[in-house]
Design a protein around this nucleic acid. Structure first.
Length: 271
DNA sequence: CCATATACCTGGCAGC
DNA sequence: TGCTGCCAGGTATATG
């Protein structure tokens, strides 16, 4: 579920409702990826200022410190005035006077970490190496191309690494490369400026479009228990191995790069 | 500094 | 039906 668009759609779904709330209680379930970093009770009485996003992290700014939330591979958040009793995969309830923010995460690759500030050592350990935000002005085509020229790993893996640009996960890496006609195995430093420009534009387009769709698909997503993501309907190549390319009918191919599956069209993506 | 492998954990599904 | 093996949207960390 959680790529940049879903994280952003999740943020939009509760940021305004939780702003200004005062924390009554923090209940933690089974261990997540990292320990909270403080005693849950120390957060009682703190107030939520705002909710921001950095890459795939959600930053819940408090009047003292902040919470860093990550959804990992299987996490989802729900904010409601009341929550049913916690199930076996509900691992955080942030109880406030305006509602309860619940983290549901079966695989527990997600995280809830408290840090005294965004500049703290702990927060920077998680955020410090992140690349630019693709949906903000700082994502510049020239700088993107210059950064790619320093890397000789396959472009797919460079995108996934997230230290040049954040938010491009396994799905959108394949999708953006298809949109721009670039073979995922091509070394990043082999992209010409025009092709880097096309990839730059494709990343913005595919992510921005998904955020837009997310608003309308979120209802389905939530009620459907997160099963049928909107990307399933929209994907040009992801998850479509051996199915005909929507452009040229060539069977879509699946390969493994860095332990992750990549999908591409061998005809539309020559080099 | 860079590139790649490894680890974390559970549920769903194909195949037998 | 029940078992086994494989796969899954992420990313810090260790290793070369």
């Amino acid at each position: 579920m959680p790529e940049l668009p879903e994280v952003e759609v999740t943020r939009l779904s509760f940021a305004e409702r939780i702003a200004g709330a005062r924390i009554c209680e923090l209940r933690m379930g089974k261990p997540l990826r990292w320990p909270l970093g403080t005693t849950p009770d120390t957060l009682i009485g703190r107030c939520v200022v705002q909710v921001r996003r950095r890459g795939k992290y959600l930053l819940v700014d408090l009047d003292e410190g902040l919470l860093l939330l990550h959804l990992g591979m299987s996490g989802s958040l729900n904010f409601a005035s009341r929550q049913p009793p916690a199930g076996p995969h509900d691992h955080m309830d942030l109880v406030t006077n305006q509602g309860v923010l619940r983290l549901h995460d079966p695989r527990r690759f997600g995280a809830v970490v408290w840090a005294p500030s965004e500049a703290s050592v702990l927060a920077q350990k998680l955020l410090g190496h992140l690349g630019v935000e693709p949906l903000q002005d700082g994502f510049d085509a020239g700088a993107f191309h210059a950064a790619l020229r320093k890397r000789q790993a396959p472009i797919k893996q460079v995108l996934l690494a997230g230290d040049i640009v954040v938010g491009v996960g396994n799905i959108y890496a394949s999708e953006a490369l298809f949109m721009s006609g670039i073979r995922p195995t091509l070394r990043a430093n082999k992209l010409s400026r025009p092709r880097a420009d096309r990839l730059h534009a494709a990343i913005i387009e595919v992510l921005a479009r998904a955020v837009q769709r997310g608003g309308s698909s979120l209802r389905d997503f939530v009620s459907a228990e997160g099963k049928t993501g909107y990307f399933q309907l929209e994907a040009a190549v992801y998850g479509r191995a051996s199915q005909p390319c929507r452009v040229c009918n060539t069977p879509i191919r699946a390969i493994v790069q860095g332990q992750r599956t990549t999908f591409f069209c061998p005809t539309c993506q020559k080099h």
